[in-house]
């Protein structure tokens, strides 16, 4: 009988084999060195499908150790099915501690949100990215977008902002407003709301962006200048929740979800579940708030 060793052994620590983890860490270091630049990486197979957070998973698993405290968020919530599954998987594979508390976590994997609470230099935020190429919408060919990045040829992305303004009177064009990282590379912050974009600027924590399907890693190191693209006269603005308070906590000044009831009436709830919990229990956690220009 042929012995199939592969299935006799349990998985390697943190699921990915050591060589591949090393490769991912090397690529991550490169991304840290060139803020905003997309570094291609191996993107090995995972037990979940590409497009379901594999990029984030690669980064998290290559970094996690038994001393880490992990938090996983999906659209602001620790409790969604995806967040629960990923948290459980990473915990089982690495024996790390898990938490809902943003301040307590050393490693946070997230999708479509940056936590409201200010992150510190002890923390790493891993973002799952569906499309890392900010220029893909204006240029289909990878070879050309690479040349465009190389030459800092960003006129086309500016035209899309101009056209968004002409069409809708605002620069905001869905989630993931393009950012200029360290004055050199234009990048996507992944589909986070505009509300979160100012939090990327000169932050104390490290932001890592993993796109598993597209096999790219990019990064915003701590204290890096991050500017949303804006015109001299038409400025970038975050979402405004004027006269709106959270129906659960009665608080404002946080990113809100609009919730519809059966009778079609709607109310607002703070999106960041841990932030909401903390507001309900005690003092308001430290937060960086952005004031829209006039």
């Amino acid at each position: 009988m042929i012995e199939n060793l592969k299935f006799q052994h349990s998985f390697n620590y943190a699921y990915i084999d050591e060589f591949t983890k090393k490769e991912i860490r090397r690529k991550t270091l490169k991304a840290v060195c060139i803020p905003g630049y997309q570094v291609p990486y191996s993107s090995p197979e995972m037990p979940i499908s590409r497009g379901w957070g594999t990029g984030g998973l690669h980064l998290t698993l290559s970094l996690v150790g038994p001393d880490d405290v992990l938090k996983v968020i999906d659209q602001g919530s620790d409790a969604s099915v995806n967040a629960c599954n990923l948290r459980l998987f990473i915990k089982e594979m690495s024996n790390c501690a898990v938490t809902f508390d943003t301040a307590e976590a050393t490693l946070i994997q997230t999708r479509h949100r940056v936590p409201e609470e200010i992150l510190t230099e002890k923390q790493i935020l891993v973002l799952q990215v569906p499309q890392p190429e900010v220029l893909r919408g204006v240029e289909r060919h990878e070879a050309k977008t690479r040349i465009m990045h190389g030459e800092a040829d960003y006129a086309k992305i500016w035209v899309t902002l101009y056209e968004a303004y002409v069409r809708s009177g605002t620069l905001r064009n869905g989630a993931g407003h393009p950012i200029m990282v360290n004055g050199r590379y234009v990048a996507t912050p992944s589909p986070i709301p505009s509300w979160d974009v100012p939090n990327l600027n000169k932050a104390r924590c490290l932001y890592l962006f993993g796109a598993g399907r597209e096999k790219r890693i990019h990064c915003i190191p701590p204290f890096t200048r991050v500017e949303p693209l804006e015109f001299e006269d038409i400025r970038f603005k975050v979402e405004e929740f004027v006269g709106v308070r959270c129906s659960t906590s009665g608080q404002d000044k946080a990113f809100m979800d609009q919730v519809y009831a059966d009778d079609l009436s709607s109310s607002y709830v703070i999106n960041d579940s841990n932030f909401l919990d903390k507001l309900r229990k005690g003092p308001r956690p430290p937060q960086k708030l952005f004031t829209n220009p006039e």
Binding site: W158, V159, I234
Partner: peptide
Amino acid sequence: GNIAEKLLMANVFNV
């Protein structure tokens, strides 16, 4: 937008 592209290439960032 096409005209804007040429102007943006020349760093006119004022709508």
